[in-house]
């Protein structure tokens, strides 16, 4: 069974009486578990709106959206919040960590909203595990301002995954990062993906798209191209080709 099944999703913004903006004009897509897909397209093509719909932040005007077997479009707001919490992990372009909140506390956040009723001990243990997974165990009590961009994005990834979601949604995850750090993030994505999690990533950089296994190109609210990547880049290998002096982490400790 597919993890995500979109059927004829349309989103229409009513701007004024005479003008409607059609952000999505009938998108049908299926994502299976273990896929790593990149959504590309120029700005205004509807890729951000699509990601918002996928993330349960925006409701489509029409169409159906099945996530992990559950129809999402018609869900009441509280249940939708639960779906966001349990089944979806978000990674944002600007990391969106809570400022003046430690790395560990940032990762604790999604579990506090979880309906399973974690205890604080469990939450802290799992947050620590999350930090270890992204290699930042020693940064637990650091504030975002004390972390480099790459480290912040790794904390954000740990936060996105801490409730063990079915899908990881990434919105321009490398938009604010230099090339080496971008590769590190892609490396993490590929590693996670190898463990079976579905990753859907929006990017406008064609090169980044080559780390995914499938590239969906959007134009004017429609999917205009949906092709598998014949030979995806392997981030860990690409990293070795970089000159050594571009290491970001070493400079800002």
């Amino acid at each position: 069974m597919p993890v995500i099944q979109l059927e004829d999703i349309r989103k229409c913004y009513h701007v004024s009486d005479t003008q409607d903006v059609h952000a999505l004009r009938g998108v049908s897509l299926v994502f299976e578990a273990g896929e790593f897909a990149a959504i590309m397209g120029p700005s205004g093509s509807g890729k951000s709106t699509l990601l918002n719909v996928l993330g349960g932040l925006d409701r489509p005007t029409s169409g159906t959206y099945h996530l992990d077997g559950e129809e999402v479009v018609a869900l009441e707001p509280d249940r939708l919040a639960a779906v966001r919490n349990e089944k979806i992990g978000f990674v944002f372009q600007n990391f969106n960590l809570l400022s003046r909140t430690t790395a560990l506390e940032n990762i604790e956040l999604p579990m506090m909203y979880n309906r399973q009723g974690f205890t604080l001990k469990e939450i802290q243990r799992r947050a620590r595990e999350g930090l270890e997974m992204v290699g930042l165990a020693d940064r637990a009590s650091h504030y975002p301002s004390q972390l480099s961009g790459g480290q912040q994005q790794r904390v954000a990834i740990a936060r996105a995954l801490v409730n063990r979601p079915a899908v990881l949604l990434a919105d321009e995850p490398s938009g604010n990062l230099d090339s080496r750090t971008t590769l590190e993030i892609m490396e993490i994505f590929q590693r996670l993906n190898a463990q079976g999690i579905l990753i859907v990533m929006v990017t406008h950089e064609p090169e980044i798209g080559q780390y995914a296994h499938r590239v969906i190109t959007m134009r004017d609210g429609r999917v205009c191209k949906d092709v598998p990547v014949a030979e995806p880049f392997v981030a860990s290998r690409e990293k070795e080709r970089l000159p050594a002096d571009t290491r970001e982490d070493a400079s800002d400790e």
Partner: peptide, 16 residues
């Protein structure tokens, strides 16, 4: 504002 957005994205209900 952004924090509120993040919290909602992470699964906070309006009432939370």
């Amino acid at each position: 504002t952004r924090e509120i957005g993040v919290r909602v994205a992470l699964g906070a209900r309006n009432r939370d």
